[in-house]
Amino acid sequence: MSLTIDPGIWVAALFTLAIFSFLYKDNPVYKFAEHLLVGVSAGYYLVQYFFSAVYKKLYVPVFINGEYWLIVGGILGIMMFARLSRRSEWVSRYPVAFYVAAWAGYVIPSYIQVRILQQVKSTMFNPFAMSIQEALSATVLLVGVITTLLYFYFSAEHKGGLKHVSRIGITFLMIGFGATFGYNVMGRVSLLIGRFQFLMTDWLGIIQ
């Protein structure tokens, strides 16, 4: 394998190095790359937003499939642009209220079902239907969930029994945050490996 002659890979590699140059210190090459990234990304997104919202979800259903009531969605969308003027800003409250309330409406039953009831149900266990080892783990899980929830219970002062219980809750939280930190390191390193693989394989051709 050898150095590539593909201009696309050369451009990608040079911009990769331009971003890495920030590690030494902030510099004009990095600033140029950073601003170009914002511009190119915004341009890319704008085209996708326009195609998906205006063409795919409005033009095709209304003017080709004849679903005329969907034009109301378009009117609500246009009302959002009233935010551009301070005098007409209030008009945009209608689509905002519509959007937020629609989300609020379906989030209530869904969250109660999936994030609360099913999670509580999965924490319960029958110690007679499992091995001692499993029962011990299930007990630790149950204690952990209850004490973590009690740690976030602020309607009563954390003293006496509640203080001790919430301290157990903190212990579980710290293990949880530690796991998050460990996975965070793992994720960031993986991203770096990805860039190095690109530079060393696709660009320099020094590894297969």
Binding site: Y111, I112, V140, L141, F172, L173
Partner: peptide, 28 residues
């Protein structure tokens, strides 16, 4: 990961679920 970490994450998840539900109700 499967026991104490899960307990912490589930505790937070249930708390967030309750908070989100309450906020959604307040919005409506």
């Amino acid at each position: 990961l499967n026991v104490p970490n899960l307990a912490a994450k589930r505790g937070i998840m249930i708390g967030v679920g309750l908070g989100t539900t309450a906020t959604a109700l307040k919005i409506i």
